[in-house]
């Protein structure tokens, strides 16, 4: 990344540009890997790109930045993702 030597509003890409947005979460998506059929709906609909698609199309959730909107759970047709309130149960 080349840095430009001029004072104007130039910004450089970074993950977490607004910080660890996982702190915003009230409900936490919990994935049941046994149930998952790798349809990738959660991956494509995640507004935050925090559903990580792996090489074998299985998925992981990036809790550092997941804002807990619940879209992944809502679009999952086989209910492999459930939303649990943060701090009550893991």
């Amino acid at each position: 990344m080349k840095k430009y030597n001029v004072k104007t509003t130039i910004s450089y890409p970074m993950k977490g540009a607004t910080g660890k947005t996982g702190n915003w979460r009230v409900f936490r998506p919990i994935l049941n890997k046994e149930k998952c059929v790798k349809c990738l709906r959660c991956w494509i609909f995640c507004p935050e790109a925090t559903v990580i698609r792996k090489d074998d199309d299985s998925i992981d959730i990036d809790y550092d930045y997941c804002k807990g909107c619940g879209i992944c759970a809502n679009v999952c047709k086989i209910k492999a993702i459930t939303m649990k309130r943060e701090g009550i149960e893991k």
Binding site: P13, M14, K15, G16, A17, T18, G19, K20, T21, W24, C39, L40, R41, W43, I44, F45, C46, P47, E48, A49, T50, R53, D57, D62, D64, Y65, C66, K67, G68, C69, G70, I71
Partner: peptide, 24 residues
């Protein structure tokens, strides 16, 4: 959906509201 590339140019942890259709 599987045919859509994995590359991401949107970086997680932005100022978008949760559930934002624009980032989607």
């Amino acid at each position: 959906i599987k045919e859509i590339p994995t590359e991401e140019y949107y970086l997680p942890g932005s100022a978008a509201c949760p559930g934002c259709p624009a980032t989607m």
